[in-house]
């Protein structure tokens, strides 16, 4: 009945046997203990559970853990490296892009994908790209500001030292 899966989560490899019906979000939260990924609606509407699956933003309540077999998964816990906040985290903090914080991990993971696809989004593009991530606290204004700021900084830091193209760095 159980099925073996191997996944790489935030750089660490894991092998588990799971029920075929186990949702990826429950695998992350309950099996791996990565509770930074939240469940807001369990029906793919709110985006609180957004993680990256092989670099693409997915709603992890809409993916079975077995579907993620062999994949690389990134969650909010993997955003900061060596205690250094990711520019997206920095920008959300500075721009007051969160209040209760429940939707925030999902919004930030969606932002990683958004900025990788389009390092220079307009505010309108940011709003369009994040329409699948609901937030009940902020009215989105400071989320948009945070994404804009993060994008600017990621471009600057990608361009500055070694001339690495922003696109390559984002990936």
């Amino acid at each position: 009945m159980r099925q073996a899966i191997h996944v790489t989560v935030n750089g660490a490899e894991h092998g588990y046997e799971v029920e075929p019906r186990l949702l990826l979000v429950h695998f992350l939260r309950d099996v791996l203990g990565l509770t930074g990924t939240h469940i807001g609606c369990d029906t793919g509407q709110c985006g609180a559970c957004t993680v990256l699956l092989d670099g693409r933003a997915v709603k992890s309540c809409m993916v079975l853990a077995v579907q993620a077999d062999g994949a690389k998964i990134s969650t909010v816990e993997g955003l900061a490296t060596k205690g250094e906040l990711h520019p997206i985290q920095q920008a959300f903090w500075e721009k007051h892009g969160l209040q209760c914080g429940f939707c925030t991990p999902g919004v930030m993971m969606a932002t990683v994908c958004l900025l990788a696809d389009n390092p220079t989004p307009t505010d309108e593009q940011i709003r369009e790209q994040l329409e699948g991530n609901l937030c009940r606290c902020t009215g989105y204004q400071n989320i948009v500001a945070a994404v804009r700021t993060a994008g600017e900084r990621m471009r600057a830091s990608a361009a500055a030292p070694a001339g690495v193209p922003a696109q390559a760095r984002a990936e």
């Binding site: 509770t35 816990e77 906040l85 985290q89 914080g101 930030m108």
Partner: peptide, 11 residues
């Protein structure tokens, strides 16, 4: 915010 943006909150 630090605990909220790093996924270390306790809901």
């Amino acid at each position: 915010d630090p605990r909220l943006i790093t996924g270390r909150a306790m809901y």
